[in-house]
């Protein structure tokens, strides 16, 4: 990946740091398109008695069409889940397992060590960052946490759908194929599927539309919208603010050690 993309590009005197490949960005677009579609066709049904439900549902196609759209979007999301799982597994194999084997170091222990050192896997550093963040928020220090390539919040954002889809998807599928599935499991499973589907969906939507959107839309330095999901590159200012450790590391690797800027302290990072 890093071969295809330059780690740092400079445009109009601003440095941009590579974050996401186009492959990943496309996956994100598919993800949010299907999730928003699912929410728009699912929530009017979940809250059918609210005044907004009927107009919205009618807009989404009404009781005949909206369920079809919902199921189609659900199928896309489940397919994306499978695809993404295959995607990281293949990359893990190519970029880690193969290399381990080449070096003759492939053991069960080293396999899992490599697996758990993937950038998305939560680790001890995240705990340190969380503690540092709360210290910072309660004014006990003037130094914000220094995140690695993936901050704990990004990891949470990543694992939220990764936990959510396996709950929502099969439950949704069971409710969709309710007649067929009744030949395999008793009807009460559908009761369970119903709760799983509706409540997990509520959690996902409440989380996405506030917490995630805060991170990328509402937050003062992002407002009205972050661009990294489109360009794949993050500017130096935000990089220092959000991923200082990663920033320093990339700068050193690219021979720019002398130009590393100090971490922003005490509010400078929030200047517009």
């Amino acid at each position: 990946m890093s071969k295809k993309y330059q780690a740092i590009v400079e445009k109009d005197g601003v440095r941009y740091f590579h974050r996401f490949s186009s492959h990943q960005r496309v996956q994100h677009v598919v993800l949010f398109t299907s999730v928003i579609t699912l929410a728009l066709t699912g929530f009017p049904l979940r809250h059918a008695e609210e005044a907004w439900a009927r107009p919205l549902y009618d807009f989404m196609g009404g009781t005949e069409i909206a369920p079809l759209i919902h199921r189609a979007a659900g199928t896309v999301l489940l397919a994306l889940f499978v695809y993404h799982t295959a995607y990281w597994m293949i990359r893990f194999y190519r970029e880690h397992v193969v290399k381990l084997r080449e070096r003759g170091e492939l053991t069960v222990g080293s396999f899992f060590r490599e697996l758990f050192s993937l950038e998305m896997v939560p680790n001890k550093k995240d705990l340190v960052d969380i503690i540092q963040l709360w210290k910072y928020l309660f004014y006990f220090t003037n130094r914000p946490p220094r995140h690695d390539r993936m901050s704990w919040r990004e990891k949470f954002d990543y694992f939220a759908p990764y936990w959510g889809i396996p709950i929502l998807g099969p439950a949704g599928a069971a409710l969709w194929w309710r007649d067929e599935i009744s030949h395999v499991v008793p009807g009460i499973v559908l009761n369970a599927a119903y709760i799983m589907h509706t409540d997990e969906a509520l959690l996902a939507v409440l989380f996405l539309f506030f917490v995630h959107w805060y991170n990328v839309h509402y937050a003062p330095e992002k407002f009205p919208a972050a661009t990294v999901w489109l360009t794949g590159y993050l500017n130096e200012h935000d990089m220092i603010h959000e991923h200082y450790n990663e920033y320093v590391r990339v700068m050193i690797e690219n021979g720019l050690e002398d130009e590393i800027k100090p971490q922003n302290f005490g509010g400078e990072e929030y200047e517009w």
């Binding site: 509520l202 409440l206 506030f210 805060y214 509402y218 003062p220 929030y270 517009w272």
Partner: peptide, 28 residues
Amino acid sequence: FKAVIFKGYVVLLMIFTVWYGYFMYPLV
């Protein structure tokens, strides 16, 4: 001027956050 807009926006967001917590309560 920028600072005032910034702080105003932050305060608005804080209000929004509190409202969201209140709005969520019956749902949760």
